[in-house]
């Protein structure tokens, strides 16, 4: 395998679950320590990783410079430290840049996880400490980015996310890369089948025994239990709930007011239909 193997998703779409699974799976199904072993699938946008490969501090760069630099740094990481990485970057060209942050020639393959945007809205509100209203608005915002906190240093560099629809489509329509799309709902409904598909795509051990063992080690209750006992370092500082909060599909039916659910559908109906959310 050469280049970057990405676990790409809009925030709060199941990325960490996949990482936890892979963290166990890549170490022969061993139990995982939530605060140590997710580094098996590190965050591509981690500031220290980006600073190290860019040869300077992103905190001294303007947002446009970061956008110009990121593809160059991605190529460098692909060359010098290929492997699995998590990212929330979209596959879009940020303003002022000439190519997406992770250009196709730096990518080996992409696992793209999508989740019903109505559930994402509920989960993102708790994670970022937003109101449900704000959450729905941000998901419609084609200028949405994360990793930028004006008053203090952010642990990540800037990532151009765009709207939920634009984000999802940017990966689904990525040209020139091998791509596997997984729906969060399918992962929940039939984990064995979906994760077997994942392993096959990533050329990892896809035997029933191995996949079940890694699934067991990364089950939701185990991750939530670890977070309850020792915290989780990737939890947002503005969060109003545990990171491992519900882990369910369809929560929006009770948690999202109908008017907001309709607004989500109104904005994202075309892409929702495309990925099978009726």
């Amino acid at each position: 395998m050469s280049g970057l193997t990405l676990i790409a998703s809009y925030p709060k779409s199941g990325n960490t679950w996949l990482r936890a699974f892979l963290a166990s799976h890549l170490r022969d199904g061993r139990p995982i320590d939530l605060n140590a072993d997710l580094s098996e699938v590190p965050n591509l946008t981690s500031r220290s990783l980006q600073d190290c490969h860019a040869g300077l501090e992103h905190s001294d760069l303007s947002r446009q410079e970061v956008a110009l630099l990121r593809p160059l740094t991605s190529r460098r990481i692909a060359r010098e430290q290929p492997g699995f990485y998590k990212t929330h970057d979209s596959n879009l060209v940020p303003p002022g840049a000439r190519e997406p942050a992770i250009p196709p020639d730096a990518i080996d393959r992409v696992v793209c996880i999508v989740r019903d945007p109505r559930d994402v809205a509920v989960s993102a509100a708790a994670h970022f400490g937003w109101s449900l209203d704000d959450s729905v608005d941000r998901m419609a915002d084609t200028a949405f980015c994360i990793g930028h906190s004006p008053r203090r240093l952010n642990a990540n560099v800037e990532q151009w996310i765009s709207s939920w629809s634009a984000h999802v489509e940017s990966w689904l329509d990525a040209g020139g890369v091998q791509l596997l799309m997984l729906r969060y709902e399918d992962l929940l409904a039939d984990p064995l089948e979906s994760f077997t598909q994942l392993c096959r795509f990533l050329d990892l051990d896809d035997t029933r025994h191995a996949v079940s063992r890694s699934l067991e080690e990364s089950r939701f209750s185990a991750l939530a239990g670890q977070e309850a006992r020792g915290g989780f370092r990737e939890r947002s500082r503005t969060s109003t709930a545990p990171f491992f909060r519900a882990g369910k599909a369809g929560e929006w039916r009770t948690a999202l007011p109908a008017v907001l659910a309709e607004r989500v559908v109104g904005t994202h109906s075309r892409v929702m239909a495309r990925v099978g959310y009726g």
Partner: peptide, 8 residues
């Protein structure tokens, strides 16, 4: 010149 990092 040899590229040592993207900007250098």
């Amino acid at each position: 010149g040899r590229e040592i990092s993207p900007l250098l």
